[in-house]
């Protein structure tokens, strides 16, 4: 199993695979985004309680999903980097971080824009919102940590440890609404006898979710490629100095 993994961790092989997948992923992202936006803005009905603000969900919920999934993927990469020292593992976590940070920021901003008309406030310090803000800070801290080391392997190590420590936050975000009373979503007080999301609203949401996933993969391939080449560039610069 470890040998198999090593095959894909080889930068050249990884780049070849990524280049082959890239046009498909990018095409799917564009197609799904257009479909999702059309469905979300024109086809989906208004919600019986929230009215037209339900359309904010189509850009809010997928962004939040991605903010959390990208972090999870970074944690797995970071662990692989620490344990097996795969050359691509640390670089892929590094490449994913700015994308995850953007999605998390969008989840926070669009959430605030929904909160003001519906809750009556842009922001509250409840467990869900606070843990999501911590996620953004973890992303920013991770990126700052990479920038603050000159030595690549030291930076990779420190950043990997930060991601893994912060990974505790992911289940906290996920279950915050069940563990504690939050404003974000009813835990025990709301009655949930009926359907949760009607198909006409669920479909655009899932299409937008898939679109954000493909968009992530597309930007991720671009960024990993840049990281691998940057690493090569740094090594060549050093070896040139030594000549």
């Amino acid at each position: 199993m470890a040998i198999d993994f090593h095959k894909y961790a080889n930068p050249t092989r990884f780049l070849r695979l990524a280049s082959a997948v890239f046009p498909w992923v990018t095409g799917a992202a564009v197609l799904l985004l257009v479909t999702g936006l059309y469905m979300g803005l024109f086809v989906a009905p208004e919600d019986y309680q929230q009215g037209e603000t339900v359309r904010i969900m189509f850009v809010h919920v997928p962004a939040a999903w991605m903010g959390m999934s990208v972090y999870t993927m970074m944690a797995v990469s970071a662990a692989a980097g620490l344990i097996w020292k795969h050359p691509v593992a640390d670089l892929s976590a590094k490449a994913a971080a700015p994308i995850g940070a953007c999605f998390t920021l969008l989840a926070l901003v669009t959430g605030a824009l929904w909160g003001q008309p519906m809750w009556g406030t842009y922001w509250v310090w409840d467990a869900r919102l606070t843990s999501m803000l911590i996620l953004l800070f973890l992303y920013l801290g991770y990126m700052a940590l990479w920038g603050s080391f000159d030595d690549h392997s030291k930076a990779a190590r420190a950043a990997a440890i930060l991601v893994l420590v912060g990974a505790i936050n992911i289940p906290v975000i996920k279950f915050s609404v069940d563990w504690w009373n939050t404003l974000h979503q009813p835990a025990s007080v709301a009655t949930l006898d009926g359907p949760k999301i009607h198909g006409s609203i669920l479909t655009p949401l899932l299409v937008m979710g898939a679109a954000y996933m493909m968009l992530f993969l597309s930007v991720f391939i671009i960024r990993v490629k840049a990281e691998i080449m940057d690493r090569r560039l740094q090594i060549m610069k050093i070896s040139q100095l030594q000549e």
Binding site: L37, R55, I56, V59, L113
Partner: peptide, 10 residues
Amino acid sequence: AFVWPSYLVS
């Protein structure tokens, strides 16, 4: 004032 800024910022 809330829906369009959400899409715009995204």
